[in-house]
Write a protein that binds this DNA or RNA. Structure first.
Lengths: 329, 329
DNA sequence: GCTGCCTGAACAACCGTTTGCGCAGCGGGC
DNA sequence: GCCCGCTGCGCAAACGGTTGTTCAGGCAGC
């Protein structure tokens, strides 16, 4: 502490907190304190401050998988806007598993995180329910909750699916299937519903399946099953780029090629998807903006707790690359 | 607090900390306290505990870019071993920029992080010097410091470069160039030195250049310059997969193809590198193990501050894929 | 010259835990 | 029957800041 080195006590606090302005402290006192603080390399003890003020300037962010590129962009966006407001990010990865989420969130709340960025919402989600019940400010990203009234920022899933289907229809495809993620995740059902609706308005009907996880392996498994069930399929809409990659694997496993026999469109436009073989046609949503918006929403909620929960939908874009082409014949 | 709901005071602390075992508290008292704590949904205030004990159970991890896939694997490894020991990860991304690093590290130290995982070391690195001077436990990963005696875990850069060069030599290549990262990063110089040495022991000599950042753009720029300077090049060794991707871009920009005219080998085996076009031949190091080892080293340092700084080298493996082939003619 | 006000800084309580120490009660040994 | 020791728990200080309140001194007004 600068105190012993000084002559004064905790006037330091007012100085270092900028309360000096209000005619409370002599300029030369302030200058002296600042000088000494600098010389001593004094650093605020955020812990002590947090204990007194009740604010830690820490927000917890929970994602399904830190190792996922798509999530990484979101994390970056959130980190940037949070650190601009002097907040730090406590990051946790749950493997999209409720038990893990429970433990991680509990740790974050123990750490007295001021708020949560929650990207692993299930529907229903007991962990999220607990958080909301405890009155912890939280904003969802990527997924929403149908039961809880919580702010959220997510891609416009419906618009995205529609873009994908319309692209394939425009290319001439008529037999489409959809690979969804876990069935208790909002984006899965939103994307599937829009897929069905877009097909229906063209007088068509498609098949679909659900992956247990958003991985290439699961995408491949579901695609294989669907291709077996609907052998004349020429187009696949996946709810996620990783599932799409798995679908391409499945197509090759059957001795076919993408896009020669079957076209595939992904969702997210994850990093490097333009470098894949084939380059992935996909629905782009700005990961950075998604994270940044979620963080902004959380900051606003922290500033104005009474604020009405808001859901912001990010507009998707169709990115046409090499994994889609007109049907073979 | 469970206290008012209870009859007792801070005997709760001893119960909840497991000190009850030592015959200090009656089993039924303990049971009652635990029951009430559960009913109240009592949760430790980690802030208050940290203030008293001086330990936050938080470790700061600073990476060049959270959006980088390679880093993501490391983060995951570190997160897993840390959370097993009840530590949380405070993550910061610096864009490999010293000013950012300074700010982020400062925030972490304010948050009283118990230790640091530092993956952005320059050589020299003023931020790191400050951390070491303040006696903050820190372990480096990916990069080391030539001046400071700090534990570190990194790939065996020399062995990796040697594998890459020997692979190209075995394929019949004789005119090789090396694309390094920033010149003030240990891995850059280690990999370059080993590149030169491996060539020298075959009686050869190669060209090299340095990228300012580990990005595709920089890789492309440096590759272009080197290919201009050494037009008969048939093999490129990049210090990083992203640089390698840039090199492939540069090759194509010149109207050539990889591996037809020029072979490329990367470093790291970042996620999805097997799906690129062409699939990347690269030096694999286990990102997960790297992160996990760094975390373990830090935990040991925290447990035994007097412990000698240790440098652990992770053995690399050559992964042969599609970006390397025998020279054209 | 005295009173009152204003300015600048010190005082002290408080945030929620941890932890060394003290204290009351009880049982056993002599 | 007395004393000692042990057992089980309460007391209170401390961690390092923040912040409402108090206090001392100087100056101006009457």
């Amino acid at each position: 502490m600068a105190r012993e080195a000084e002559v004064h006590v905790s006037t330091v606090s007012r100085v270092l907190n900028g309360q000096a302005a209000a005619g409370r402290i002599t300029p030369q006192t302030e200058a002296r304190i600042r000088a000494i603080a600098r010389d001593l390399g004094y650093r605020h003890n955020a812990i002590a401050r947090a204990l007194r003020t009740g604010r830690t300037l820490i927000v917890g962010m929970v994602v399904p998988d830190v190792g996922n590129l798509y999530q990484a962009g979101i994390t970056r966006g959130a980190g940037d806007v949070l650190s601009a407001d002097r907040y730090s990010l406590l990051l946790a990865s749950t493997d999209d598993d409720l038990a893990h989420a429970e433990a991680q969130v509990s740790a974050m709340l123990s750490a007295q995180a001021d708020g949560l960025l929650y990207g692993v919402a299930r529907d229903p989600d007991p962990v999220l329910e607990g958080v909301v019940r405890d009155g912890i400010p939280v904003v969802l990203f990527n997924r929403q909750s149908s039961e809880l009234s919580v702010p959220a920022v997510l891609p416009d899933d419906g618009a995205g699916s529609r873009l994908a289907v319309e692209h394939l229809l425009a290319l001439g495809h008529r037999r489409l299937i959809h690979i969804g993620g876990p069935a208790d995740v909002s984006s899965t059902v939103n994307r599937l519903e829009a897929f069905d609706a877009a097909l229906a308005s063209a007088g068509l009907e498609g098949g679909h399946g659900f992956a247990d996880r958003h991985t290439e392996e699961e995408g491949q498994r579901v695609a294989r099953e669907l291709l077996d069930a609907y052998p004349d399929t020429t187009g696949i809409v996946a709810a996620n780029d990783r599932l799409a990659l798995g679908a391409i694997d499945a197509i090759r496993q059957q001795g076919a090629e993408c896009p020669d026999q079957v076209s595939v469109v992904g969702f997210n436009d994850m990093p490097y998807s333009e470098r894949f073989d084939p380059p992935l046609t996909t629905i782009r949503i700005s990961q950075y903006e998604l994270g940044a918006n979620a963080a902004r929403l959380l900051l606003e909620t922290l500033a104005t707790p009474s604020r009405k929960p808001e859901t912001v939908l990010l507009p998707p874009t169709l990115v046409i690359r090499g994994s889609t082409a007109p049907p073979a014949a």
